[in-house]
Design a protein around this nucleic acid. Structure first.
Lengths: 234, 234
DNA sequence: TCGTATAATTAGGATACCCTTATATTAACT
DNA sequence: AGTTAATATAAGGGTATCCTAATTATACGA
């Protein structure tokens, strides 16, 4: 395909591809296979389209698809994905610290900016920000090289009544939840204790930095905690 | 077309459309009709494609096409275009002042970033930068509302031997030239005097901030000057 | 082992851009 | 007025990505 230079550049970063890689990386977290269905769901596209694209990405050597099982990123794919997360989180730092924007906007804008940052730009940004290790939501920023530091975390939803911890990060795949938690001043570093859990694994009453709050289980699943005390998960 | 939310957002800003509008705005500068051929040329696409797109843009009410004459942006189109230039130039300020990147990269990155900045982001950036009036190359930054301030400028190529002036801005449509001039320390504010013009309207020998330089006519056309002295254009 | 729910694929379409080649049309100069 | 060069349009293609509906293949629990 012979095509104009300028217009070609528009598609250089292949945003669609990047969205897939990022999504897969976010879902897989623990190295397990990611069902194509989940990808489709998260991207709000049909399973047929997702399936098609998965094939394309496999052809490009970015992932491996085990039919009826799921998908796993190759090293190449993982590198790409981490690059995107890196860009995303660095931009989040900038948007938060320098522009003072609220979490929701920070996330949404970063979702756009992550696709238009070449390494030179990203690295310059990194330096400008003082090489931060975590995004405003507490997620680690993948380094240019080397392995992403993994921290031991427990979803708030797994804590039992009386257990205490400190918020390490909020899983940021979902923009909505960030808005919700931003408004409730739930931040990395917040001290939290479960006061009560409603029947049927229902909403949690928690003490968050001394403030009484009620959080649904779904929300609690997205808040990752470092246990304090010697308390074991129930 | 019913389509996924996330993926839809990828194309929300319609980069192609924006490239056309920006290009047309840059070429037209003086309110004249822009031949479709020129648009095609600048975007490095075929005239057929450009023609097609011009029709689309006309249908969208962004421009008016007078066959065999050219194209003119409507008010809507102009607003869109100025929005893009505003974003582009604000990002250029950021990339220059805060990240310390060289002109060429600044321009290239801004070309990407300009398509992914909503108003909220742009305005926050504007504030963060202290509401600058000009980009690093001296081009005015269109305000959110109100009219773009127009300055009286003369292309360096129009100056005669002995005439003097101050560089106001470099027309930044072309990334290459920025690299070239960056390396030669040609900046807004530089003092320049024409020492000699080679035959056939050839290369200019100029004194630029005391430095002897030779600049081709093409390049000189892109350097816009404010005349000093009472010197009239020859 | 069988049946069902889940996953994958096939078939047929749509859209937005882009391309080349060939054919009109018009402007503009002699 | 007539010819030419510039401009526009028509015809036929291509790619990437998405869709729905219908079909086929598989895994896994009863």
């Amino acid at each position: 395909m012979i095509q104009g230079k300028l217009m070609k550049e528009l598609h250089k970063f292949d945003e669609s591809e990047e969205m897939y890689l990022k999504t897969i990386a976010e879902i897989s977290r623990h190295g397990n296979l990611v069902p194509v269905t989940n990808i489709a769901e998260r991207l709000s596209i049909s399973t047929v389209s997702a399936s098609e694209m998965v094939h394309r990405l496999q052809d490009r050597g970015l992932l491996e698809h085990t039919p009826y099982k799921g998908v796993r990123l190759t090293d190449d794919g993982m590198n790409r994905a981490e690059g995107i997360l890196r860009r995303h989180r660095l931009w989040e730092c900038f948007l938060t610290e320098h522009l003072g924007l609220p979490w929701k906007q920070v996330h949404d804008f970063a979702c756009q900016l992550e696709h238009v940052s070449e390494d030179t730009l990203t690295d310059a940004l990194d330096e400008h920000l003082g090489f931060p290790s975590f995004c405003p939501h507490g997620n680690p920023i993948p380094p240019t090289q080397g392995v992403l530091e993994v921290r031991e975390t427990t979803p708030l939803s797994d804590l039992g009544v009386g257990q205490e911890g400190v918020v390490l990060c909020i899983r940021e795949e979902d923009g909505e939840i960030l808005d919700y938690l931003d408004a409730r001043a739930v931040r990395p570093g917040s001290r939290v204790r479960i006061e009560e859990i409603a029947p049927y694994d229902g909403p949690r009453s928690v003490l968050m930095d001394g403030e009484q709050q009620v959080l649904g289980r779904e929300v609690a699943e997205h808040i990752l905690i470092e246990l304090v005390h010697g308390n074991e998960t129930e």
